[in-house]
Design a binder for these strands. Structure first.
Length: 926
RNA sequence: GCAUCUGUGGCGGAACUGGUAGACGCGCUAGACUCAAAAUCUAGUGAGCUUUAAACUCGUGCCGGUUCGAUUCCGGCCAGAUGUACCA
């Protein structure tokens, strides 16, 4: 008889559920600890062994913190709006809510198997009206706010109106779409529609005609982070630029604060760096170049020091000034070029980055510093969305300008000489010198300065002369917030005579209406246009829905107060739980969810709804668990399969085989293989010895590669405790690592060994009440100290090793003493809670181990009386001697002299000098 | 191109603020138990040299530096992973 994990785990999971052991209460006497997993989108495929990795890690921390006396909040929920359920609905007509519900139930079943200590009473689902009420509420708050740079926070839009009424729009220091200027009288004369349009320019959630990423295959627009390399992240469909009227969130207003906040949170350096790059702050200068027709051309540059090296100007094809400056003889050619450039798809443009194209407008601009005439060109390498869509080109010191100059035979003038170089003949150059290090030459007032100083001096100079100013640019774009889909949150917006208005808060939630088919209408309207009688007093609602990230922005706050009907989270509750102490999830959300969530949290902080302005204090990205795929080798054009070792003798195709058909990682079960699929029924094999050996490779774990390890099967076979320990044992949490099927046996052995430690051959429990020996206590306390340290560092793989060493040593000592076992059970309970609970009960405890006190580490059991000193003789470390720590310096010398391992190296020579560094090293010079 | 991270046995991976590299696990080898297998247990397992043992030598991607001493710190290269990119 051995440890029966099925029985034991079932028993404890039932008891935890029945007694609601993990329910978090707002207990203000204890310090709080909020540990959160990124809630999953419940896909139809269910979980594979990669998913639970983060859940297990967070569960270990949650259980550990409970035993450390914290009041732990550890909730779970579902990000339930999403494309797959909608696409399934389009195909089958089944309401996405039904699919979603089914998938959630499946997820829950799988999660429950793992013995995770979630407080399920706080579960949230983004598609639940009582939840999306607050998603809509947040949207209304954004709609009713603007961002003031003087106060450096969001303020109610009503506070802006007096300034507009007074005609001070042009003096406002606020975030806006475009600068505005109108008089008090003009405002008074504006129609309602016009006033609404003006306010839209300032609202944090605003409607605007914008160039968007349109994905025709998905029938919707996408945010920038949902598009990679010109195709959609979901589905990989081509995406084109298109101008449409869309809701957006003015996240750009928060660019500086989003950047600055990164300094105060404990995230991995790489993740912070991704966000910094995405925000893309660059300091530089805005400059005005006069055109020959008298108009001014605004440009942005980070290299004001190279102003004297500018030899031409470039405008983006969308630039509004092009029409008025193009000379008559160039008009036709310029128009043709612009048409060509605009019709190029995003994908073509990205694929042909190296293709240099452009056209001369026939006009010239005047360099404000030296009065030189610079030809103005149009080229698509200058982007409309960044800076002012126009640049001064310095081919000598910018690789893109250089390529352009070479193609169109424009002059290249060197104005910066890198350290240790001389001025060169630029006609010989193969590439530009982009480095920001060096000395400025040929540049009037800044000649001789270092690049950094030159930039500063130029900016001061242009500000003085009124031809420009120092400024900062961000790459971050506002977040496009509407989707032309059904399965999402409806906007709490209706149109009265075409003017968008927000529903009042009491009218929330605005329920998602039922419709018959989930496709866009014949006229290309979003699916919600199909809803019958769906309006507010006869005024139509907005037919868009919110994007996937809408529901996840503030979900962490909702867990704090999930049943509150009057607030997203009550002030009192939020004051207690505050923000998330530890957040675990994948790094794929770096520029999506994690950025938007920070933005929304800062906004809610500004309007006084929450007490902190960062959502996640500490973030850990768990690595991917990769799969080990197996291959068989089919001889080309036949149905014969050759074993791995012999495959080079034939021409073969490698085919993935399901890992369940393979034993011991590489031996193919021929019968199962033949039965797997019809095409293999008549397969013939060329064996090695009497076996068919499969090839293998480490790949992403995926259904289509037949390498998925199913957690349900593993729990059934080995138990949840073993799976939990093994997932942690695989390697460092943040690293991606391959799943090794055989490795789990080692952990399974450990569990059995642990059980045997205090069970006799007949599986009868027995502990000794004898006091533990010094040695046994040392073993225990070494484990306590190590595990505590490891958990604090999230180094769970080494904790598991520590348990193994500990149990091995105790087995050797035949130690089954109560005073050792009791603390050990607690120590191990966060990793393997079921077996720990069972022992805890066998030891006579009535209460669950969940709230037992974490054992106190006591250094006194480990105190060393001796220390191993390295001994260096004539500068070379030769040996180590063990010395009593209490020895004096003279005592050390005597001990060294006596130690034969040292004597050997002395060659009978006398000691000339003896240097003793306490607790470090003994140096001897002979 | 730029940025971040990572390079240690056959494999996954340990090594506290620099101090006897390779903990723990897998795999492999040998042995015990067994009619046999599974399970379990015991021993061995970086490389070289050596009949054996002991001893010695070399070993943490490569080159160099600091130090009595470097997987660890510094500089330069190489490789891989991830992110990002006509962002002026």
């Amino acid at each position: 008889m051995e440890y029966n994990h099925r029985e034991v785990e079932q028993k404890w999971q039932n008891r935890w559920r029945k007694e609601q052991i993990f329910k978090a209460k707002d207990n203000k006497d204890k310090p709080k600890y909020y540990v959160l997993d990124m809630f999953p989108y419940p896909s139809g495929a269910g979980l594979h062994v990669g998913h639970p990795l983060g859940y297990i890690a967070s569960d270990i921390v949650a259980r550990y913190k409970r035993q450390k006396g914290f009041n732990v909040l550890h909730p779970m929920g579902y990000d339930a709006y999403g494309l797959p359920a909608e696409q399934y609905a389009i195909q089958t007509g089944q309401h996405p809510a039904i699919t979603t519900e089914q998938n959630i139930n499946r997820y829950r079943q799988q999660l429950d198997l793992l013995g995770l200590s979630y407080d399920w009473s706080r579960e949230v689902r983004t598609c639940d009206p009582s939840y999306y009420k607050w998603t809509q509420w947040t949207f209304i708050q954004l709609f009713n706010s603007f961002y003031c740079y003087d106060a450096n926070k969001a303020l109610p839009i009503s506070e802006l109106i007096p300034a507009l009424e007074g005609g001070f729009a042009k003096d406002l220091n606020v975030a806006c779409g475009k600068p505005m200027d109108f008089s008090a009288q003009q405002w008074a004369d504006f129609s309602e529609q016009e006033r609404s349009d003006v306010l839209m320019n300032y609202r944090l959630a605003y409607l605007s005609e914008a160039m968007v990423n349109w994905c025709a295959d998905l029938g919707t627009v996408l945010a920038n982070d949902e598009v990679v390399n010109g195709v959609s992240v979901r589905g990989g469909f081509p995406v084109e630029r298109k101008s449409m009227k869309q809701w957006s969130l003015r996240i750009t207003a928060y660019a500086e604060r989003l950047l600055e906040g990164l300094e105060r949170i404990e995230w991995s350096e790489s993740l912070k760096e991704i966000q910094r790059n995405w925000i893309g702050k660059s300091k530089g200068a805005t400059l005005f170049f006069e055109l020959e027709n008298g108009e001014k051309l605004e440009i942005f540059t980070t290299r004001a020091d190279t102003l004297f090296g500018a030899t031409f100007m470039v405008l983006c094809p969308e630039h509004p000034i092009i029409d008025s400056i193009t000379t008559d003889d160039r008009k036709a050619a310029v128009k043709e070029y612009i048409t060509w450039a605009k019709n190029r798809s995003e994908r073509e443009r990205l694929a042909e980055v190296k293709l240099v194209s452009g056209i001369f407008t026939g006009s010239y601009a005047i360099n404000p510093l030296n009065g030189e005439r610079l030809p103005v060109w149009v080229a698509d390498y200058v982007l409309a969305g960044y800076g002012s869509g126009a640049i001064m080109a310095v081919p000598a010191h910018d690789s893109r300008d250089f390529a352009f100059a070479r193609k169109f035979n424009l002059p290249v003038r060197q104005v910066v000489v890198p350290e240790g170089e001389q001025e060169e003949d630029t006609t010989q150059w193969q590439e530009s010198k982009d480095s920001k290090e060096g000395t400025v030459i040929n540049s009037g007032l800044i000649t001789g300065l270092k690049v950094k100083d030159a930039i500063e001096k130029i900016i001061n100079y242009i500000e003085e002369k009124g031809i420009g100013y120092g400024t900062t640019n961000y790459r971050l774009r506002d977040a496009i917030f509407s989707r032309q889909r059904y399965w999402g949150e409806p906007f709490p917006i209706y149109y009265e005579n075409g003017v968008p208005k927000a529903l009042s808060e009491e009218k929330l939630p605005l329920l998602l209406p039922d419709i018959e088919t989930y496709l866009p209408t014949e006229t290309g309207e979003p699916p919600l246009a199909r809803a019958k009688d769906w309006n507010y007093n006869g005024n139509p609602y907005d037919h868009n829905t919110m994007p996937g990230f809408a529901g996840s922005n503030a979900y962490y706050l909702r867990y704090e107060d999930p049943h509150n009907d009057t607030a997203l989270v009550s002030k009192e509750t939020n004051d207690y739980w505050q923000n998330v102490d530890l957040y675990i999830g994948g790094s794929e959300h770096a520029t999506g969810h994690l950025l938007y969530s920070r933005f929304i949290t800062k906004f809610l902080f500004d309007i006084g709804k929450v007490c902190t302005d960062e959502p996640f204090v500490r973030l850990i990205n768990q690595g991917m668990v990769q799969g080990r795929s197996n291959f068989v080798y089919r001889i080309k054009g036949t149905n014969r399969y050759v074993s791995f070792g012999l495959k080079n003798e034939y021409e073969t195709d490698a085919l993935h085989v399901d890992i369940s058909l393979v034993e011991n990682n590489d031996v193919l079960n021929l019968e199962k293989f033949k039965a797997w699929r019809e095409e293999f029924n008549a397969a013939e094999f060329i064996l090695e010895g009497d076996k068919y050996i499969c090839g293998w490779e480490i790949e992403k774990m995926s259904k289509s590669l037949y390498n998925v390890q199913n957690p349900d099967m593993l729990v059934e076979r080995y138990g949840a405790d073993t799976l939990r320990l093994y997932e942690m044992f695989l390697g460092p949490l943040e690293q991606s690592k391959p799943w090794d099927t055989q490795g789990i046996e080692g952990v399974s052995r450990f569990i059995k060994k642990f059980w045997r430690l205090y069970h006799d051959r007949d599986n009868v429990f027995y502990v000794s009440d004898l006091p533990p020996s010094k040695e046994e206590l040392a073993v225990l306390h070494r484990a306590i100290g190590k595990v505590e340290q490891d958990i604090e560092k999230f180094s769970f793989n080494t904790s598991v090793s520590t348990f193994m060493v500990c149990v091995n040593l105790l087995t050797d000592l035949k130690c089954n003493k109560r005073q050792i076992l009791e603390p050990l059970a607690v120590l191990i309970s966060s990793f393997a809670p079921h077996i720990a609970e069972e022992i805890w009960e066998l030891l006579g405890h009535k209460e669950t181990i969940t709230y037992a006190q974490f054992p106190k580490f006591d250094n006194k059991y480990l105190e060393q009386t001796t220390f191993k000193y390295p001994v260096s003789i004539n500068g070379k470390t030769r040996t180590f001697i063990e010395l009593d720590l209490s020895l004096t310096q003279e005592g050390v010398e005597t001990a060294v002299m006596k130690d034969s391992s040292v004597q050997k190296f002395l060659d009978n020579k006398p000691i000339k000098r003896f240097i003793f560094v306490p607790k470090r090293i003994i140096n001897i010079v002979v």
